[in-house]
Design a protein around this nucleic acid. Structure first.
Lengths: 335, 335
DNA sequence: CTGTTAGCGCGTTCAA
DNA sequence: TTGAACGCGCTAACAG
């Protein structure tokens, strides 16, 4: 019986003792250090196997001064967009032998702050954040040293790299399709204008109208929608009011789904356009124009930017970069 | 300028030096230890603030011998079922001041193995696993000491707690509804029978038929379906063959979606029943019988079981527990 | 090729 | 109430 605490995991010393070598030799074997004889290597590996030993990564990263972990902070993991983003991040990290710590803010700024503090306390080497608020001044002081990359929303009050969707052109393109189809009374259902995506997508919507020489009707614009229920109510309101629009533009998948629901309940076949593809969008029986993009790719790009910052340290202080992920327009149903 | 390394984070010694106290006093203040004078406390807190100091949790958990972290291993984060489960786990952990490390196996056994090893190396205090394969013998040796709770699939080759959906009764109930409606030729679209959920849901399907004295037709059973595309193909095959079924039972949301697609493309209104609710299931215009359950609750229950094991240590070796989460049946569209 | 020393940042123990 | 010494498990730097 090795002289170690009953309940605890075996340590390197236990392995060393059993293999009748020093702890250093064990360390070297486990590190694939070439400077170690075959005999020692075999004895060590046998002891490792016998004890079921696994190196304590906590102690290791304390000693090495790097955890090999980055933090990912998203606003809503239940939204497939963010889980895809997370998978994209993990894909790139795996190539680098790094790990990811995933946290969910539920769009709450206080949780974002607490989670970021926690990540810093655990000495993550960097973090990718989908910021909950429109400004991130608090992140600047929290992340002393560790690089930050923002995803889906641009930095404000903070000078960092970010990866964005081409919100403006996506919205413009989809709106142009509706105008092409002859629609002139298009309603707008948007998330809060304080959000970057909300503002950009509205800009695109407006720009498309200008190109067609059409003046959008402010009366048909509803912004600040948060979930499916409020979106459905707003859509119903527009569609049942005087001078109902013949088409609706929706700025995200939850809003589109609310609009689909309203259109369906009212027994209409109003044309819809919106951001974010979703399951079964092709079998709804409603003419649908979807602005789609690769959520995984946002994660991959963000991870690449972050890893680059981590590797180059803070020395080569190159300016903040901005990667734009392109969008494509898909059409479902007969217009 | 404090005498600390330029790039690194400040340590407790840096704070101590600035506050002109010992490191121990800093430690005590940060721990809210009552045995410390107001004067020292203030000086320390001021120094902490000035340096932007944050306690190094890595060093802390090395010293304390507990990381306050558990691992969650899921098979497919892109499936909303698992992201909801993750949120449920996190909800309970937050109450206990614990953290979660989330990993995705993509249904690959080799990745599961590697991820579990990694979690053990990081000395997580326990783990919740949605196992990729039908047996988990490899987990037994990997998780020396750390308790494991399985979610969604029962243990095999391993003696642990688990949280399951009431697969049998859910499937039975939904099938009974179809039989109640007069259907006698019901097709079955299932995932691999080697999977627990696949087998149980098939059992429920069969049991419902027996209760009605109806003999299911083996010709109308398709099992081993993995994704939406293969499910759609199988559904189309059944629906266009001789003696086409008047209804289909689907064992999970991806299969249901494939079936919806096939029904839609064929211009039919075949009644569908299936596990897992999904967005917009109510506006498809197809009679739909859905077996629903609370995915968050699975996560919450699993977390509670795990925390209980962690707190009680391995001493009180009580037998493995099994929690069954109930299902409810929802009906959409006119049958 | 192998072992010894020292210390990563923190907290427990014990003495002042 | 405060501080000094020691060690958690591991590895870089330096002997031998």
């Amino acid at each position: 019986m090795p002289s170690r605490r009953a309940g605890g995991n075996p340590t390197m010393r236990d392995v060393a003792q059993l293999a009748r070598v020093s702890a250093m030799s064990v360390s070297r074997v486990l590190k694939d250090d070439p400077g170690v004889s075959g005999a020692v290597r075999e004895r060590v590996l046998a002891a490792v196997k016998e004890l079921g030993y696994r190196r304590n990564e906590t102690a290791r990263s304390l000693r090495l001064g790097g955890s090999g972990t980055i933090g990912l902070v998203v606003t809503n993991l239940a939204n497939p967009f963010y889980s895809r983003l997370a998978l994209g991040v993990q894909e790139v990290l795996a190539e680098e032998g790094m790990r990811m710590q995933l946290s969910n803010t539920a769009e709450r700024l206080d949780r974002e702050r607490a989670l970021v503090e926690d990540l810093v306390s655990h000495r993550v080497e960097g973090m990718i954040v989908v910021p909950a608020g429109s400004r991130q001044d608090h992140l600047a002081e929290a992340t002393t040293g560790a690089p930050v990359v923002l995803a889906a929303r641009p930095p404000a009050g903070l000078d960092t790299d970010c990866v964005l969707v081409d919100d403006f052109h996506g919205a413009r393109e989809a709106t142009l399709r509706l105008l092409d189809d002859g629609h002139r009374d298009i309603g707008f259902l948007g998330n809060p204008p304080a959000l970057y995506t909300g503002a950009e997508r509205f800009r695109g919507f407006w720009a498309a109208h200008e190109e067609f020489g059409v003046e959008p009707d402010e009366e048909r614009v509803r912004r600040g929608l948060g979930d499916i229920a409020t979106a459905e109510a707003a859509a119903r309101d527009l569609l049942t009011g005087a001078s109902a629009p013949t088409a609706l533009f929706c700025t995200n998948n939850r809003i589109t789904q609310g609009a689909v629901r309203a259109v369906h309940r009212l027994g209409l076949r109003t044309a819809l356009a919106g951001f974010d593809d979703f399951e079964l969008s092709d079998v709804l029986g409603i003419p649908l124009t979807i602005v789609s993009y690769d959520a995984d790719e946002i994660g991959r790009q963000a991870a690449r930017l972050l890893i680059d910052r981590i590797k180059n340290g803070t020395e080569h202080r190159q300016p903040a970069r901005r990667v734009i992920v392109p969008t494509t327009v898909i059409r479902y149903g007969t217009p």
